[in-house]
Every structure is written in C-alpha cells, then in structure tokens.
Amino acid sequence: MFRNQYDNDVTVWSPQGRLHQIEYAMEAVKQGSAVVGMKNATHAAIAAVKRVPSELASYQKKLFAIDEHCGVGIAGLTADARTINNFLQTECLNHRYAYSRPMPLSRLVGTLGNKMQVTTQEESGRPYGVGLLMIGFDHKGPHLIQIDPSANHYECKGMSIGARSQSARTYLEKHLDTYQATQTVEDLVRHALRALRDTLTNDQELSSKLVSVAVVGKDHPFQVYDDQLVEDLISEVIKEPRATVRPAQSTFAVQAEDLMEEDTNRPPPPDPEVAVALDVAVHRGTNP
C-alpha cells in the first residue's frame, strides 16, 4: 500500500515542493462550518453557521470579539482558535496600553502571521488547524482579512471559508459590486446571510439558532448579533428563492477550484494526495 513518506512532520519537503502537514491543516479548515465575510465602504460584516455537536449540547461559538475595533470568525479547530484569540486580544490590549489608540489591522495580522509561521517550520508541534476571517475598522477604513494555517493572510473584499464555502464565494464574486455599494449595515448583513445560505445543504435553512452575525465599522464597535437580533433579517432573506441547489453531480463546469472544495457528497481525498497547492490563489478575483 502506498505510504506517504513526506508528511511525518512539517519540516520535510515532498519532491513536488510541498509541505503536506500544512496542507492537512488547511484541510482542517474545510471541516469547520462556513464563515462568510464582506465589506462595503464603511463597514465589514461576518456571518457564520454554528454547529451543535449533539442534541444535548449548545451551539459552538463561531465569532469572537478581539477588541472594540475588530473581531474574528473561525473555521476549523475551535480550541486552536481560542489560543489565537487570546494572543490577538493581548496584542490589542498592549497596543492600547502603550499608544492609547487601537491597533491597526495590518499590524495585528502581521504579528499573528509571524507567530503562525513558526509552526510551519518547526519539527515539534503542528500548524494551527484553524482558518480565520478577521474584520475590523482602522485608520484605513473597514477590513476583511483571511488567515490560513499556512500563515498566509489576504486582504479581501469578500471571502468565505469552511465547509461548502465555494458556494458562498460564488455568490460573493457574482454580487461583488452590489454589496460593495451597500449603504446600510442591514443591507450588508442581508448579503452575508444570502451568501451563507448558499453553503447550506438542501435540508438546512437559515435560522437564528444556526447563524451568528457580527458587524464592525465607522463609529460601530465590533458587535456580535445572535439569536433574536438577527431574526428579522433572516426571516426576510429566507422568503427569497434559494439559489440553484447543486445536485450531487455538479452541473457546473468543474473547475480546479471546485476540486479543492470539500463536498459532503464526495468521499474526502485520501490523505497523501491532498490537492491543495500552497501558492494557488484559491480566491482569485476577490483580492483587492
């Protein structure tokens, strides 16, 4: 039987020039439930699907405040995300303590990138198994930043990570001009909910239990809206007809990007043959 010789630890290259451990960590992100983020001229919003591990358990939190001016949505290992959140919160507190003003997103994500990069180069330990969508507002305006276990980070106009997130990205690419031009927070959140809705399976529908929304922007501190607070917007959005639901066999032209997307109807690829290349721009067309 085939055995991958190049994935025992993160310091070993494969002959193709790939680091398999990092690619596996990127896969962990796709196991997490979807998070969608987008921004307009003044605000940024994220929306996430919450999962419940059992009938007897509460929903897993997906959105976290980092400081008054920023927060994150996570997909992947929640426990890893907690470590990262603590780090981000401490960085923001330290910056405020010294300079009496909020830490710019570029600097915050830079320090996180430095921290995460170490885990992609050290024999002991493993990369973080979580992807983040960070939103925030600073001197440059609203931000949406995607952060991978590979320690790469991308500034985005709209982005989605997690299970079935390709559907949301399709929505975000198609409606880029529309949500960028939105004038109100409500309109922006509606788009986030629509994009998130596209990641749901046939038997699922948006509900206030299932969905968390967070917004940050000009004169609008980071705020998570759960339960009742998103109820009204959700009830509006679910009245709209659903986007074409993908059947098991996609009718769309299969693109390279689609292959990278986890599809619940398809068995996951065998571990040694992960089809993610580190430098492939998965999100082509959405980078600023």
């Binding site: 010294a98 300079y99 003003r101 710019p104 570029s106 600097r107 830079g110 440059k140």
Partner: peptide
C-alpha cells in the same frame, strides 16, 4: 517599512512617552 500609513500621532507619542 510597514507601508500601511500608520505612524506616530501627537496623542500616541504622548501616551507612549508617558509610559
């Protein structure tokens, strides 16, 4: 070098110097 348009402001310098 960060090239992100973020730099000292009088308030941040005042705060940092105080610390």
């Amino acid at each position: 070098n960060s090239d992100d348009g973020y730099e000292w402001s009088p308030k941040s310098l005042h705060s940092w110097l105080t610390r």
